[in-house]
């Protein structure tokens, strides 16, 4: 009799474990329903900007290292762009607006572009960048953990990536950036 009931308890516990396991999986599935499955790399946010070297746009054969580009103690906005990329035109007015902010220095990384096209683009729509660099084969943008154009990084004075935007900057992103840089400067 005692043996029988002990067996029953074991059996009950066994089923309880399975029940809990199913419940666990069910809740995982439930929570997964509302999270996006599209992967956006965010590994580098909050970390220090990786080292890289990039060719200068104005001066062929001149190369800049990371420390030469981000040499001042201020906020930098690194923007990857190309003349052939439609969304880049979309975000261009925001970049122009941002270039008026003196607390911020804009660095453009021209991604796999023809030089004359890039120049034409800047002449026509205005050049918001304090410095323009070239990424001929995509290797610089890979070093930055980027995967397309446009992509934008907000880098603080300690060369840490504070914000990252994949795709064209929107007005809300503009406000986010302003808030970040002005908040820091007030303190």
């Amino acid at each position: 009799m005692f043996l029988k009931s002990r067996e029953n308890i074991i059996r009950f516990l066994f089923f309880l474990v399975i029940f809990l396991l199913l419940f666990f999986l069910g809740s995982i599935f439930f929570k997964s329903l509302n999270t996006t499955k599209i992967f956006v790399p965010d590994k580098l946010i909050g970390r220090s900007l990786p080292d890289f070297t990039a060719e200068s746009f104005d001066d062929k054969n001149k190369y800049f290292t990371k420390n030469e580009i981000f040499n001042e103690k201020k906020y930098y906005l690194l923007n990857i762009w190309a003349s052939w990329c439609g969304p880049c035109r979309e975000e261009h007015p925001i970049l122009i607006k941002l270039s008026n902010d003196h607390n911020l220095e804009l660095v453009g990384l021209n991604f796999k572009d023809k030089k004359e096209n890039a120049l034409k683009f800047l002449n026509k729509s205005g050049n918001p960048y304090n410095k323009v660099l070239i990424d001929n084969n995509g290797s610089v943008s890979i070093s930055l953990g980027a995967y397309g154009v446009p992509e934008t990084f907000l880098i603080n004075e300690k060369k840490i990536i504070e914000l990252k935007f994949v795709g064209p900057l929107k007005n809300s992103d503009y406000k986010k950036i302003l808030k970040k840089i002005n908040y820091k400067n007030e303190n």
Binding site: L25, I28, F29, K31, S32, T35
Partner: peptide, 9 residues
């Protein structure tokens, strides 16, 4: 399903 579990947990 492991990637799903890991992402949630």
């Amino acid at each position: 399903i492991y990637p799903l579990i890991l992402e949630i947990l």
